[in-house]
Amino acid sequence: MASFFEMGGYAGYVWPAYAVTAVVMGALLVASLRTLRNREAELRVLQQARPERPRRRQTPAAGNAEAAGDA
């Protein structure tokens, strides 16, 4: 097990490479999810403040897709 972490003496290069990859991909995912949640919350507030929506029949379908995505 110890030899696995040593990476044949190259631990100082191999592990940082994997760490950088994980950090960047993780940050992309978290930031994207956070933006989406914030916008969903903002839209909910706006739509509640103005219940009579002068929108066409597109709205229920979009609403369903968002609800499905939340699950």
Binding site: L29, S32, L33, T35, L36, R39, L43, L46, R50, E66
Partner: peptide, 26 residues
């Protein structure tokens, strides 16, 4: 991974456009 995160981001952009439209009518 790219497809998943891309779809998340596009969804957020569609919501942003909706928010902008509502603000504009207000």
């Amino acid at each position: 991974f790219f497809v998943t995160v891309l779809f998340l981001r596009v969804r957020a952009e569609i919501l942003a456009a909706k928010i902008r439209a509502i603000r504009l009518t207000q």
